[in-house]
């Protein structure tokens, strides 16, 4: 049982990759159901083609079609596929030497059980119904009973399709799930917030009060320890007005993002300022936390909806000068 506060996060983006000429031709070939290898300076045909020759370092220029079938060189069995793999049922990964190629090629093989796969077996490409010019245009491999292809150049597939127009880009979704954990010191801070309290901690060496508390005081390299309950009032040290919208943003611009130095703390933290026109926010402005309704509280600093001005006069610049 974890003692720290934990929450799931997903880091997800659809990456837009430009392919360059070599990979573009290879992926364009797949869209047209042609597998292209690259001829390297030692005369070998390598699939997928390397972009640059291993020996001469020149860009690989000769792309040659190989067969869409070949022989299994190595395999393993995947009883429990992980997300986004080619098949969502148990399958085999195989290294296949396609007929006409001198290297092996990694992809999935669709067979019912590990008993149905062996080194040396013949397999062929199963093309995806919808092809976009991506490695996933090969849905997977499947067993084949055809004899090896002797002369790849005679393959009818070579001349099929849309003339082998290269692709220029490919979209690759990357989504990874993580469990984020706060440090023990931060966890104590967030748990106190769930009770409507703001709790900092003092460094046992330099005696500075950190809010949120820290796993390591950045001056002394030891955890902050002694709890210090802080008021929810403080001073704006400095700020910016965010006018720019961006992907993933959770607060509608424009908004004022400010460093608030709570009374009794030795470090400011970032929060929102509202209840005042953005162009009237100033360094030294005295502010107070505005809490969300109690029933919405959880272990997050978002329990404080924002800070708003108090009626006090601005703090003297000298009091914030050392916090900029």
């Amino acid at each position: 049982m974890a003692e720290t506060l934990q929450a799931p996060i997903t880091v997800s983006f659809d990456y837009t990759r430009s392919t360059g000429p070599v990979l573009g031709a290879f992926l364009g070939g797949l869209r047209d159901r042609v597998v292209l290898g690259g001829r390297t300076s030692d005369g070998r045909v390598v699939v997928p083609p390397p972009e640059f020759d291993p020996a001469t370092h020149e860009q690989v220029s000769e792309l040659v079609p190989v067969a869409a079938e070949g022989e299994v060189v190595s395999w393993t069995w995947v009883p429990e596929p992980v997300a986004a793999q080619p098949l969502d049922r148990p399958f085999a990964w195989v290294l296949v030497r396609l007929d006409g190629a001198d290297s092996t090629f990694l992809h999935a093989l669709d067979v019912a059980s590990a008993d149905d796969v062996e080194t040396g077996m013949r397999v062929r490409v199963r093309w995806a119904d919808e092809r976009a010019g991506a490695i996933t245009d090969i849905a997977c491999f499947e067993p084949s009973h055809a004899p090896p292809v002797e002369e790849v150049a005679q393959q009818p597939s070579r001349n099929q399709g849309a003339g082998g127009e290269p692709v220029t880009g490919v979209v690759t979704p990357v989504a990874l799930d993580y469990t984020y954990a706060a440090s023990p010191e931060e966890s104590a801070f967030y748990r106190a917030l769930a009770d409507g309290r703001v709790v900092g901690q003092r460094c046992p060496v330099c005696r500075k009060v950190y809010v949120p508390p820290r796993g390591a005081c950045p001056v002394d390299g030891v955890p902050t320890t002694e709890e210090v309950e802080l008021p929810d009032t403080g001073t704006v040290t400095t700020f910016c007005i965010v006018n720019v919208p961006f992907l993933g943003q959770r607060i509608q611009p424009p908004y004022v993002s400010a460093y608030v130095l709570l009374d009794g703390a030795d470090i400011a933290f970032l929060h929102l300022i509202q209840g005042i026109p953005a162009d009237e926010v100033r360094m030294g402005l005295r502010v107070r936390a505005v809490w969300r309704p109690r029933e919405e509280w959880s272990t997050t600093i978002e329990n404080i909806s924002h800070f708003e001005p108090t009626s006090e006069p601005d703090a003297d610049y000298a009091t914030i000068e050392g916090h900029l």
Binding site: Y190, Q249, T300
Partner: peptide, 8 residues
């Protein structure tokens, strides 16, 4: 998680 998403 847990912190204010003011970062821009």
């Amino acid at each position: 998680p847990f912190i204010m998403p003011v970062h821009a």
